[in-house]
Each structure stands twice: as C-alpha cells, then as structure tokens.
C-alpha cells in the first residue's frame, strides 16, 4: 500500500453530492479546506448550513477520530475541538469511502491571527488554550498534535479552537500523532507517553514559534538550543521563565502553567512602568494575600496578650489570697 498525501486522491469537485449510505444525509461539496496524511477536509453545505466534511480511504483513521470527537463531547464545557454531526460511508465508483461531518470552524490560524492583530493577543489566546487543555486533561486525554496550524481563532470575540483531533490520546498510552517541532521526544526532552506535560511542552513550542514563524531545525539539540533561541528573541522575553519551565516539564497541570503565565504578564507590565510603581505594583499583586496574613497575626498576637494579662493577674491574685490566708 502506498501512502501518498491524500491530495487529488478523491475525485471530488465543487458541486459533488455526497450521499450517506447509512443515514441518508445529503452534502453538497463547496471546496477543499485542507488535506493531511489522514484525509481531505471539504467545506460542504447541509440544510443550508456550512459544515466540514472529512473523507479518508482509510476507514480506520476515520473511526479513530470519530471516537475522539465523541469523547470530546463528553468533556463538559470544553469546546476545544469541533462538534461531531454525522458519520457515514459514501459509495462512489464501486468504492466505499468513509467520512464524518463536523461543525465548520471558521477563522485564521493562530499565527496569521497574531500577525494580523498584533502580539498582544498571544498571551490571551494561550491562556484560553491552557484552560481548555486543562479540561481535556482532567477528562483523561492528551491532545498530542498541538501546533499553530491546528489552532483556529474564531470570533468575534476571538476564541481559540482546535480543528485536528487525530493525535488525541488516552493518558498513559503512546502519543498517536505528532509534529517534530512541537514534540518533546524530537528535542530529547522527554518520552512520547501521553501525559499533560507533553501538551504543555507543545504550548511552549507554539510560543517560540510565534517569535520564529518559519521554525528552525534541531542542531546541537536539547534544551540549550531552545534556551538560546528564547533568549535571543525580544518578543519572548515576557514568557521566558514560563517557556523554560514548560520545556522542562516542571508544570504539573495546564492550570499551573496558566497561573504562572498570568503572574508573569503582570510582572512584565510592572517592569515597563516607572521605578516607583515597579516596586509597589508587583508587590501588591503578587502578595495580595499578605495584608490579610498580617491582620491574622495581629489577631493572634491579641489573643496571646489577653492570655498573658489574665495569667499575670491571676498570679498576683493568687499571691494576694495566699498572703491573706497566711
């Protein structure tokens, strides 16, 4: 069997009608949206609504992706992936082609969006991504093939979504699909076992990718090369510590990385202000809980004081009584 890239594998043009064999739904193809190793995605119309239809001559990968999409729908409040609308077969020219239909997620991919709207959106979108990833991780999955091409920004208001779930893997298993640049195994920084830190590594690489849109190859490899690249980029300065932490797998959850990113952003806005403010602002924000603690201490001190007084007075009273008795 030869695995070509799937382009031009199916003779599907604008206007082709796809008839489902099992559910008898009719889809009218409008154009090709993209293709990958596992199939071609088309924009189609169904009951006057736009949908995305993915077709593959490999029924296995269709079923496998449908499984993932189904379990995505069970993750509450996580609209990270597209919702699944239909799964069916299409009989054409004596062949049976499996396909599935999902919600059409429209918008530019992550890098084009940031290029268009400015760098200030980077942190916002990464924060959105991290909270969605957290929900996915809590449901026992790892996304696997995280990369800017798979991330679409819809809106307004801008919201990050994932379009390719082919790499999504149950935690503890081997990652199903990955892209070298975003894979920690490639950089020699960890295994390909699916755990939350695998995704967080990819998020860090996406941040690096924002500063180096054309990516770069591994040379000496490892952490040193990545560190060097992060240091060289002015754009990455505010995220430096977060990126390095994530690259080394030091964050245990997406939420932890998210929190760290928020704190970092606040720290970096402080740096841009005057020296006086710089001293007061981060202190106030980072230690928002500090005044509370001091108050508690005071309260504790008050109790001790009262006790001491009572003790002292009762001591004196004791001596007084003692003297009286004698």
């Amino acid at each position: 069997m030869m695995m070509n890239s799937m382009k031009s594998q199916f003779n599907v043009n604008r206007g082709t009608v796809i008839d489902g064999k099992w559910h008898q739904n009719r889809y009218l193809i409008e154009k090709e949206l993209g293709y990958g190793a596992n199939g071609v995605v088309y924009l189609a119309k169904f009951r006057n609504q736009h949908v995305a239809l993915k077709m593959s001559d490999n029924g296995i990968s269709v079923t496998s992706e449908v499984n993932v999409l189904k379990s995505f729908s069970k993750v509450q409040g996580s609209p990270l992936g597209p919702s699944l609308l239909d799964v069916d077969d299409w009989k054409t020219q004596g062949k049976v082609i499996s396909f599935y239909v999902m919600e059409y997620i429209q918008g530019p991919d992550l890098l084009s969006f940031i290029k268009q709207k400015g760098d200030s959106w980077t942190a916002v979108l990464i924060l959105q991504l991290l909270s969605d990833l957290d929900k996915l991780h809590k449901a026992g999955w790892v996304f696997g093939d995280l990369k800017p091409e798979n991330l679409i920004v819809t809106g307004p208001p801008p919201k990050i979504r994932c379009i390719d779930v082919g790499g999504t893997t149950i935690q503890g298993r081997a990652i199903k699909e990955f892209t070298e640049f975003y894979d920690r195994g490639y950089w020699g920084l960890g295994s390909r076992k699916a755990d939350p830190t695998y995704d967080l590594f990819a998020v860090a690489m996406i941040l690096i990718n924002c500063a180096y849109p054309s990516r770069f190859n591994k040379d000496a490899g490892g952490l040193e090369q990545l560190k060097e690249r992060v240091k060289q980029s002015k754009q990455l300065q505010p995220y430096e510590s977060v990126i390095l932490h994530a690259l080394q797998g030091k964050y245990h959850s997406a939420l932890e990385m998210r929190q760290s990113l928020i704190e970092n952003m606040q720290g970096s806005t402080g740096q841009q202000q005057t020296r006086m403010q710089k001293h007061t602002k981060p202190a106030q924000q980072a230690h928002a809980t500090a005044p509370l603690k001091q108050q508690k201490k005071k309260k504790k001190g008050g109790v001790a004081e009262t006790l001491m007084l009572i003790l002292l007075i009762s001591c004196l009273y004791f001596f007084y009584i003692y003297g009286q008795v004698i």
Binding site: V66, V87, D89, S98
Partner: peptide, 13 residues
C-alpha cells in the same frame, strides 16, 4: 468492520 454501521465501528476500533 466496514460492513458494520459507523456507530458500531467505534467499539471495534
């Protein structure tokens, strides 16, 4: 597997 309805295939997969 291809002869099964799509809904059943998932379990086999």
């Amino acid at each position: 597997v291809e002869d099964l309805p799509p809904d059943k295939r998932g379990e086999v997969m």
